[in-house]
Design a binder for these strands. Structure first.
Length: 113
DNA sequence: TTAGCCTTGAAA
DNA sequence: TTTCAAGGCTAA
């Protein structure tokens, strides 16, 4: 913005845009803060660990309700079954067992903010 | 069992 | 050499 009141000088005002609203930084599973890519997508540290444990030890859970439990940061512990279901539904996959397999370029998803 | 921090190793 | 996600570790 050019200040019309300044004579010889020009003041430039930089508009700092804050899209605080939807800056996808939340785990698609529980809404916690993401810590990076885990099993294919951005998730939080806890869901990463949960998914890992579940897969590694072949955990089998059962839902006490109708397998429709809402998963959020405070209820995620409540129903592992629904939590795992959600992990799968949002796209978590165990396609990167360490020690082999090429992660190739999964650069299809950017963080173009 | 959960979840945050740490180690590791393949890819860039 | 740096990056960063998989897997390890462990306090609570």
């Amino acid at each position: 913005v050019i200040n019309p009141h300044s004579k010889g000088s020009v003041t430039l005002k930089v508009m700092e845009y804050s899209y605080d609203d939807d800056l996808e930084e939340l785990c698609p599973v529980c809404g916690d803060k993401v810590s990076g890519y885990h099993y294919g997508l951005l998730t939080c540290e806890s869901c990463k660990g949960f998914f890992k444990r579940t897969v590694q030890n072949n955990k089998r859970y059962t839902c006490a309700e109708n397998q429709e439990c809402k998963i959020d940061k405070t209820q995620r512990k409540r129903c592992p079954f629904c939590r795992f279901q959600k992990c799968l539904s949002v796209g978590m996959r165990l396609e990167g067992k360490r020690k082999h397999l090429l992660p190739q370029q999964k650069k299809d998803t950017f963080l173009t903010h």
